[in-house]
């Protein structure tokens, strides 16, 4: 860029945009490069409550039902009411009660945020894979499931900002926690002596809670320092595991996001691995069938929610995974 251009171009941009821009930097580092309009367009996905940022396109409730069944129901349930992941429906009016249920319907204040979030972060394992039309449709469907819009609703950049969410007015600003010098809402004093007349323990963990949920809690402390000198059983083995080893089948399952829906011994959205092993015990053809099922998707043999097709693991990895699942998903 010539000296002339450097002097003139910023001034021209300033006139065009009409803003008050920072004075010429104290130093021009000549670092970075101008972002082209097309580059910005590809990444500029944020949507504000006033609708700024909503793309062209549209989607109806009916179209949304199809999108939802294909991409969303796996985790959220066909009616958006599955509690395994964030429930999308229900709870409207519950926030003021003793049993608040926080959902899109009950808590979210702007439908534009629903679009923004689906568009950037959903589906969970394949984010940004939906077209704007599909995102509009999915948003319309979720709003309809919550009885916020009628069945004939079509979401687009004009209609979505106008949707009045039930909790639109459920938020307020508390400046005390918005500024470094904000005024706090608690007012303890630095009393030093005889500060309490009686001290009563009002809450503690239930008996057996820690050992049941955490096992031997002393294993989580350094013996040398914490007056718990006993070296935990986990100590040596955890530290000497070699990092370069081939991933275990369990690690493969995590890397390929299988564990998002399948627990080892607990069903999440799909069945637990150990339940799968139990069903197919002694079935010689099970491995081949399950490998195909992972690749092509399931038919909902374990419930109403079908398994979507998976392309993640290599064939060799898939064979190891299925072998491990059918062996009862052993820990070691």
């Amino acid at each position: 860029m010539s000296r002339f251009e450097r002097l003139v171009l910023p001034a021209a941009a300033l006139l065009l945009a009409g803003g008050t821009y920072a004075a010429t930097p104290t130093r021009d580092y000549h670092l970075g490069r101008p972002a082209e309009a097309a580059e910005i367009a590809g990444w500029d996905i944020d949507v504000r409550p006033d609708g700024a940022g909503l793309p062209p396109g549209q989607g109806s409730v009916a179209q949304g039902e199809k999108v939802f069944e294909a991409h969303c129901a796996t985790c959220h349930g066909s009616f958006g009411d599955s509690n395994e992941y964030m429930a999308l429906t229900g709870g409207i009016g519950s926030l003021k009660t003793n049993a608040p249920v926080r959902t899109v319907g009950s808590k979210l204040n702007f439908a534009t945020t629903l679009f923004d979030y689906i568009n950037r972060a959903m589906p969970f394992s394949q984010s940004k894979s939906l077209t704007p039309d599909e995102v509009y449709a999915a948003a319309a469907y979720v709003l309809n499931l919550n009885d916020i819009v009628p069945a004939g609703f079509v979401a687009d950049r004009d209609t979505l900002p106008k949707v009045k969410m039930p909790n639109r007015d459920g938020f307020f600003l508390f400046p005390g926690l918005m500024h470094v010098r904000g005024k706090p809402d608690t007012h303890n004093t630095a009393c030093m002596h005889d500060c309490e007349t009686a001290v009563t323990v009002t809450g503690q963990l239930p008996p057996g809670f820690v050992s049941t949920l955490y096992g031997d809690i002393s294993a989580e402390f350094r013996g040398l320092y914490t007056m718990n000198e006993r070296r935990p059983a986990a100590a040596a083995s955890a530290a000497t595991t070699t990092a370069a080893a081939e991933p275990s089948p369990h690690e493969l399952a995590e890397r390929n996001n299988c564990t998002v829906c399948h627990g080892i011994d607990k069903a999440i959205v799909g069945p637990a691995y150990r339940d799968v092993a139990a069903r197919y015990r002694g079935d010689a053809g099970a491995a081949a069938r399950l490998e195909r099922k992972v690749r092509e998707g399931g038919a909902g043999n374990w419930g109403s929610i079908p398994m979507p097709p998976q392309s993640g693991p290599t064939d060799a990895e898939l064979a190891r995974l299925i072998g491990w699942v059918l062996a009862g998903a052993p820990d070691k």
Binding site: D46, R48, P49, L95, K96, T97, P100, R102, V104, K107, L108, N109, F110, T112, T113, D116, Y117, A121, G170, F171, F172, F174
Partner: peptide, 18 residues
């Protein structure tokens, strides 16, 4: 008003307002 500053990461008060 992103999801992480509305649906989540907002502080619900006893009256249900956040």
């Amino acid at each position: 008003n992103s999801r992480e500053e509305s649906l989540q990461y907002s502080d619900q008060m006893p009256d249900g307002m956040s």
